[in-house]
């Protein structure tokens, strides 16, 4: 009999992600695609990506948990769980300590507090506003005539972050124009954009003490966002090896738990 696998699919607002775990909970494969407009299709494509990477998993996926905005569109899911619970499960699995997890997503940012036993004690989400999210970075990148990766590259060369006074995405775009017109170095402006995200997140919850974990597509280990968070908080911020896959990993872990693959 072939070994069974567990799958997590996170259909997010900008990107969709999937993770396959083997029977022992080991990471077998991961996949990322832009979500686009067809949630069902991207989920199927991600599933195929996993099966291509791990042919043994074909017909051997015991359970699939779908999460994210498009979780209801994942037809092959055996259950659906919110990304908040998936994020909590993954962070506990990866770090096994009381912590505060910050997930900077495409459309929203979530802060999840885990206690000593791994139980979620609180969570916050940003209000009806794109500030402090990946969408803010995308919008600012477009205004600076670059891509999100290009924005990070620019910010990486910045020395003296230009403070952005506005947290509103639309107003901030106007403010960028003023700063460019005033001749401020674009690298410093880009760095200021990251600081604006950090400030917005930091105001969502008390982050003055305890372990902080940062996840999401913009949270590359050693990247600008992580560095700016560390500068703002005055201490190290933990980042998983695959920060963009954290929620999908949590979904796969919960699939495993549901299938009683783990105690």
């Amino acid at each position: 009999m072939n070994a069974c696998f567990y799958c997590g699919v996170d259909v997010g607002s900008s990107y969709s992600k999937a993770v396959l775990l083997d029977a022992s909970g080991g990471f077998a494969a991961g996949a990322i695609r832009r979500t686009g407009l067809d949630f069902a299709r991207v989920a199927m494509e991600l599933h195929q990506d996993l099966l291509v990477a791990v042919p043994d998993a074909r017909d051997n996926v015991a359970r699939t948990v779908a999460t994210g905005y498009g979780r209801d569109n994942v037809a092959f899911a055996t259950s659906r769980i919110t990304e908040v619970s998936c994020q909590a499960a993954a962070c506990w699995h990866l770090f096994h300590q009381a912590l505060t997890a910050i997930d900077v997503g495409g459309q929203d940012t979530k802060i999840i507090v885990l206690g000593e036993t791994g139980r979620r004690t609180d969570f916050r989400m940003n209000r009806r506003c794109a500030s402090g999210t990946g969408a803010f970075l995308e919008e600012m990148a477009a205004r600076l005539d670059t891509t999100p990766d290009g924005l990070e590259a620019l910010a990486g060369r910045g020395r003296d972050a230009v403070p952005l006074s506005s947290f509103c995405t639309v107003f901030a775009k106007g403010e960028l124009l003023s700063l460019i017109r005033a001749g401020r170095p674009v690298e410093d402006i880009a760095l200021g954009v990251y600081d604006a995200v950090v400030r917005r997140v930091v105001e969502m919850a008390s982050l003055q003490s305890g372990t902080i974990v940062l996840t999401g597509g913009a949270a590359r280990p050693g990247g600008v966002l992580v560095g700016r968070f560390e500068a703002a908080l005055g201490r190290q911020v933990l980042v998983p090896d695959r920060p963009q896959l954290t929620v999908a990993l949590g979904a796969a872990l919960l699939a495993m738990r549901e299938g009683e693959g783990v105690p």
Binding site: T82, V84, S85, F123, R128
Partner: peptide
């Protein structure tokens, strides 16, 4: 957003 908040809270 409201749906996610409520569902996540019920799970909690």
């Amino acid at each position: 957003g409201v749906r996610l908040a409520l569902e996540a809270f019920v799970e909690q």
